[in-house]
Simulated assay, not measured.
Amino acid sequence: MGSLRSLRQAAGSYFRLYERGASSSLRLMRNSNLKRINGYCAKPQESPKAPPYTYSHRVPLHKPTHWERKILIWSGRFKKEDEIPETVSFEMLDTAKNKIRVKVSYAMIALTVAGCIWMVIEGKKAVKRNESLTSLNLEKKARLREEAAMKAKTE
């Protein structure tokens, strides 16, 4: 998970640097229309309808693996594997993984509570049979002493 996040951050920083470089080169191209007369620069006459600079930010896309496709289906983002596009955004994958994490944590909470209830029921059954850890340990130690005594007699 950490490597995916670092890959995403690296891709984002790369695109920011690329956009900075692209915007500065666009500025240079716009300023290159200056007329050079005897080494001096003079501004050209600007038209009143100059096209505004448009900013378009593309989100980097990722081709999902087989496992990530299953995650997208389990999270409820898509109904069938055929509906998943060739490339998906990192945000969509992160959202799907977070939904799966939440579902798994809920399942673990339910299993933990069920296990606790089962242990309480088993403990109450053991009390009814007069079994406790102390009595079981004492019986085990007595059995081990008898076995050790038997071995000592045979040797």
Rank of each mutant, 00 (worst) to 15 (best):
F90I: 12
Q45E: 15
P48T: 07
K128P: 02
E139P: 00
K70E: 14
S75L: 07
G39D: 07
T154N: 05
R30P: 00
L144A: 02
M1W: 07
E155C: 10
T112H: 05
L4I: 05
E139K: 15
N33I: 07
Y55D: 09
A42I: 12
A11Q: 13
K140G: 00
E147D: 05
I121H: 08
R77C: 06
L138C: 00
L7S: 13
S24C: 07
K70T: 04
T154D: 10
L4E: 05
S32H: 03
K128T: 12
A110M: 13
G76H: 10
F90D: 07
R30F: 03
S32P: 04
A152K: 11
F90L: 15
N31L: 11
F15W: 02
E147H: 06
L93A: 03
L34K: 03
N98S: 14
K80E: 08
F90C: 09
E86T: 02
Y55A: 06
S75P: 01
Y40H: 13
E68T: 04
R27G: 11
K99A: 11
C116R: 05
L136K: 09
R36M: 11
M92E: 15
W118I: 08
P60S: 10
R145F: 12
E139Y: 04
S23A: 15
Y53D: 12
M119Y: 10
G39M: 11
I100C: 09
R20K: 01
F78K: 00
A22G: 00
L72K: 01
A22R: 04
L34A: 07
V104W: 05
I109Q: 08
F90Q: 09
Y55N: 06
N38C: 10
S23Q: 14
R36N: 15
L17Q: 09
L7N: 11
N38H: 11
L34I: 01
S13T: 13
